[in-house]
């Protein structure tokens, strides 16, 4: 099952995403609450991957990454660092081997960071084609794996109009969200930890 999760910052999206990804990997039916059975810390019948999208730039970033890895520790996630080129995770190399098993369960946290990495390149340039590319990559990844939880961010409620680059980014993320909402089996919004079912 592919799932798109969105909502505001610090509303419990990542926590909920981790819960249902663990349910999916354990072969349990995914429940609305996402609460796994008590005994789950892995190993699971299916490989369980956490796709880390942050590209660290300084010690603060490294510290945050260490904290996140520690939080996931004991939950049975294997961390895959992939800040760009999502499909690169399941693309077979010359020997037919890929970085990850597409039959596994994937948690991508977050679409927002992935788009940012693709749109605002390391060399400081801006890639206007990132929206379409990331939308295509994410939907292809959903189809290739069939078992991915995508976490995005709801950044569409401001009264202020931002600079062109920021508005381009908001529009691009909405483009990716809407493409994912079409291919995902389930779309949920998390607010204050409460799940609103959209699809």
């Amino acid at each position: 099952m592919n799932v798109l999760i969105s909502g505001g910052a610090k509303n419990g999206k990542s926590y909920y995403a981790q819960q249902i990804a663990r349910q999916m990997a354990s072969g349990q039916p995914v429940t609305a609450s996402g609460q796994p059975n008590a005994d789950h810390g892995g190993p699971y019948p299916l490989p369980l991957y956490y796709i880390a999208t942050m590209i660290p730039h300084d010690e603060e970033d490294h510290a945050r990454i260490r904290r996140h890895i520690a939080e996931r520790d004991g939950w049975g996630f294997e961390t895959l660092e992939q800040g760009t080129d999502l499909m690169g995770l399941v693309r077979p190399d010359a020997e037919g081997k890929a970085l990850a098993d597409p039959k596994g369960v994937f948690l991508l946290d977050s679409v927002t960071a992935l788009l940012s990495n693709e749109m605002f390149r390391e060399d400081g340039s801006f890639d206007a084609g990132a929206a379409e590319r990331v939308a295509a990559d994410c939907t292809a990844f959903a189809r290739a794996t069939g078992n991915t939880v995508f976490v995005s961010d709801y950044i569409y409620g401001d009264a202020d109009r931002y600079d062109t680059m920021t508005e381009d980014y908001r529009r691009a993320l909405a483009r990716v969200d809407r493409a994912l909402a079409q291919v995902c089996d389930r779309v949920v919004e998390v607010s204050a930890g409460i799940i609103e079912e959209w699809k």
Binding site: G157, D158, A159
Partner: peptide, 21 residues
């Protein structure tokens, strides 16, 4: 468009617009 859920705008007119909306 619902513009009620973001940061309180710095600009006075935009703040008033947010409430008008």
């Amino acid at each position: 468009t619902d513009v009620s859920q973001g940061i309180v705008p710095m600009d006075k007119t935009t703040r008033a617009f947010r409430e008008m909306n």
